[in-house]
Design a protein around this nucleic acid. Structure first.
Lengths: 191, 191
DNA sequence: AGGGTTCTTGACCATGACGTCAAGTAACGC
DNA sequence: GCGTTACTTGACGTCATGGTCAAGAACCCT
């Protein structure tokens, strides 16, 4: 997990770790678009060092995204898989993803695909979409979920919620939930 | 409609008109947060003149908001009032407002209450909310719309759609519609 | 310990926005 | 026409961001 070629000098290694940690904190709190100066300050280094070590925001994100987000998303998938009823499984998946988007701005940024050109992120999104598609199919097979719903619709719903979550700015959590429950009801067959 | 005290010099009057016109164009195209330089350029005037004549963005907005937005919103209210079926009236109101938000960034900004401290705008929003509340009540009385829905919920739905519309950036109109139809279905009773 | 190399720093440039004001320009009244 | 006054200009100051780089500091090896 930590073999990047030549071996760094002691201070450099220390800084890389410090920056990673700071980035985790800052990104978790304010999303992946936080000013890099803030990360630098939190790490007790200068901005230049981040550019030097990680090549800019994209590199920094790549370096922390796994720890920051992947496990949360994969955790949801795993947890939801255990639900037997396909409809409940599908709805639960959406609920959990939506809440994650609300609670973790960084996860939200990832799901919104707001980060062009990062391979691990793209892969993660791809996977999540496939999984969602599976859940959707199973749920539709029971007849309880509208069958004109597509995988793309599901992604759209997630995207929209993400945009909303981003604008909410840590308030109104119950309004957020209340409102996505309306949408969820609208996905059921026979309205 | 045009008696603001002392009477302006000819060039000033010309400029005020030009700026108003330019502001209508620019605001219509890019919303009420467009850079004032852009308005100035469109009016063939320098930025300073806008500040001089209108006192800044807020004043400029106040000067055009009526023509820009009020009539659209009031038009929708009037049109929708003519619908007899209360449920259809309520749903139609939401649809039209949502489309307006999508199509006119400026109207959206107004409905999002993104402009603090402008009296005419506040009044307009107030009025729209009251009207929406009325439509909601009538629709609920028929039993076809969930009765746990509040006027505040309706405002929330409008707010959320506005946020989404703002992020859409002139694409995906059908996705936008498709998705709000889901929400609309979720507002109906008995799901 | 000291020389050579790796790292870090923070001042610097750029962009794009808001808002101000002294100085220049144009209209008006006589 | 011409002086007076109203009006406009655009350069300037400010702030917040992204990003770079020469010069100085820290480290590591011998």
């Amino acid at each position: 997990m930590s073999s990047d070629g030549p071996r760094l000098r002691a201070d450099a290694r220390r800084n890389v770790e410090g920056i990673r940690t700071a980035a985790l904190d800052v990104f978790r709190a304010h999303g992946l678009n936080s000013p890099l100066d803030e990360v630098a300050r939190a790490a007790g280094v200068s901005k230049g060092t981040i550019y030097h070590r990680f090549g800019g925001r994209q590199g920094l994100i790549d370096a922390v995204v796994e720890e920051l987000v992947a496990e949360r998303i994969l955790g949801i998938i795993t947890a939801v898989r255990a639900i037997e009823d396909p409809v409940e499984r599908f709805e639960s998946y959406l609920r959990q993803i939506w809440l994650l988007q609300y609670d973790e701005p960084a996860a939200n940024d990832v799901l919104l695909r707001a980060l062009p050109g990062s391979e691990p992120i793209a892969a993660l999104c791809e996977h999540a979409s496939k999984v969602a598609g599976g859940f959707l199919g199973d749920a539709q097979a029971t007849g309880a979920i509208r069958d004109d719903l597509t995988e793309e619709d599901v992604y759209l719903l997630i995207w929209e919620r993400g945009i909303i979550a981003r604008a909410c700015d840590q308030q109104h959590r119950d309004g957020f939930v209340r409102s996505f429950e309306h949408t969820l009801r609208g996905l059921r067959a026979g309205s």
